[in-house]
Simulated scan of single mutants.
Amino acid sequence: MDFSSTQIIVISAIFVWSGFVRAGLGFGGAALALPLMLLVADKPLFFLPIIATHLLIFSGITTGLRFKHVDHGFLRESLTWMMVPKLIGVIGLLSLPTQWMVAFIYAITGFYAVTWIIKWEIKSQSPWVDRLLYIVGGYFSGASLIGAPLIVAVAVRKMAISAYRDTLFVLWFILVVIKMLAFAIAGVDLQWQWSLALLIPAACGHMLGLKFHKLMLTRDAKVVRQWLGVCLLGVIGLALSKYLLATPL
C-alpha cells in the first residue's frame, strides 16, 4: 500500500484512537476505528492484520500480570459456542468481495452506534439468548473483528466486574490468534512492517486508555457510549458521502 504523507498521519492518529478505545473500554478497538480506516482505504484485509497484531500485544501485556482475575468458566463456555461461527466468518472475509465486507462492517457499526445513542443495551436473560449472542458475535468477530458488543452483553451478566476486562482481553487474544492463523494459511499479508511502524501510536493510545479506564469506573458509561455512537454515525455519513460522490479521501 502506498500512502501519502497526509494519509500516514491520519492512519497514525486512528491507531492512537484504536489503542485508546481498546484499553479504555476493554473492547471496541476495531469497531470504533475500522470505519475510520476504511475511509482512508477500502482494504479490510490490509488493516485487520495490523489491528489483530496490536490486540495480541496489548491484551497480552495488560493481562499478563493479572491472569488470576480471569474467569475461566466464561472462557470455556463462550469459546464452545463461538469457535465454528468464528471460522465461518473468517472464510467469508477471505472469499467475499471487498465491497461486500466494507458494507457489512459499516452496517454492523451503524447498528451499534444507534443502540448506544438511544441507550439501548443488548441484554441476555436466558441461556439460549446467551448462545445466540455467542454465535452471532463469533461470526461478526471472524468477519470483521467487531463482534465484541454482542459478546459483552453476555459477559456483563455472567462475570464479576473485577474479572470483566481481563477475561475479555484473554478471549480477544484467543480469537485473534485463530484469525491470524487463518490469515497465514490463506496467504494473507500479515503486514508486520506496518504493525511495527504503527506500534508507537497504538501504544500512546493504550496508555491514555488505561488512565481513561480508571476514570470510566467513576462515570456513567452509557453517556460515554452515547457520544461515541454519535461520532460513529458521523463517520458512516462521511463514508456514504464518499461513495456517493466517488471522490477519494
Score class of each variant (00 low, 15 high):
231 C>E: 07
70 V>C: 03
96 L>Y: 00
102 V>G: 06
221 A>K: 06
72 H>N: 10
108 I>R: 08
97 P>R: 02
63 T>S: 15
125 Q>L: 06
181 L>W: 01
243 Y>N: 07
98 T>I: 04
49 P>I: 10
138 G>T: 05
95 S>R: 10
90 V>N: 03
109 T>Y: 11
241 S>Q: 07
172 W>I: 15
236 I>V: 06
94 L>R: 02
240 L>M: 14
133 L>S: 07
199 L>Q: 05
33 A>E: 00
23 A>Y: 04
161 I>Y: 12
243 Y>V: 01
65 L>K: 14
143 A>H: 00
70 V>W: 04
222 K>H: 12
43 K>T: 13
232 L>N: 08
31 A>N: 01
161 I>K: 14
166 D>N: 15
20 F>L: 10
151 I>D: 08
150 L>T: 04
166 D>P: 13
45 L>C: 05
87 L>V: 12
232 L>Y: 04
95 S>G: 02
120 W>C: 05
148 A>T: 06
123 K>T: 15
44 P>F: 02
177 V>T: 11
25 L>N: 05
82 M>F: 00
24 G>Q: 06
15 F>A: 00
172 W>P: 06
174 I>L: 14
113 A>K: 07
84 V>R: 09
24 G>D: 06
160 A>L: 13
95 S>Q: 08
44 P>W: 05
162 S>K: 14
141 S>M: 15
12 S>F: 02
146 I>S: 13
166 D>Y: 14
20 F>T: 00
128 W>H: 10
25 L>A: 10
175 L>W: 07
28 G>P: 09
93 L>I: 05
75 L>P: 07
62 T>Q: 15
168 L>R: 12
47 F>Q: 03
1 M>S: 11
54 H>M: 15
36 L>T: 04
164 Y>D: 09
34 L>Y: 03
75 L>T: 02
191 Q>T: 10
241 S>G: 07
43 K>N: 14
215 L>E: 12
134 Y>W: 06
80 T>S: 10
3 F>I: 01
93 L>Q: 11
45 L>T: 07
242 K>E: 12
105 I>V: 06
177 V>P: 01
214 K>T: 09
35 P>I: 02
197 A>R: 12
5 S>W: 02
110 G>M: 09
138 G>I: 08
23 A>H: 06
95 S>I: 08
89 G>E: 01
53 T>C: 11
92 G>Q: 06
97 P>Y: 04
154 V>W: 09
180 M>T: 07
176 V>Q: 11
87 L>N: 06
172 W>L: 15
18 S>F: 03
114 V>R: 14
219 R>N: 14
171 L>H: 08
154 V>D: 12
88 I>Y: 00
142 G>W: 01
196 L>C: 12
21 V>C: 04
248 P>D: 03
193 Q>E: 11
7 Q>A: 01
132 L>F: 15
15 F>I: 00
178 I>C: 13
231 C>P: 00
224 V>C: 11
219 R>Q: 15
94 L>H: 03
26 G>K: 05
34 L>G: 04
141 S>F: 11
208 L>V: 00
224 V>Y: 03
174 I>A: 09
107 A>M: 13
140 F>K: 11
141 S>T: 15
96 L>Q: 02
137 G>S: 06
9 I>V: 09
96 L>A: 07
192 W>D: 08
245 L>D: 04
82 M>H: 02
59 S>T: 15
103 A>E: 07
190 L>P: 03
6 T>Q: 03
236 I>R: 05
185 I>Q: 09
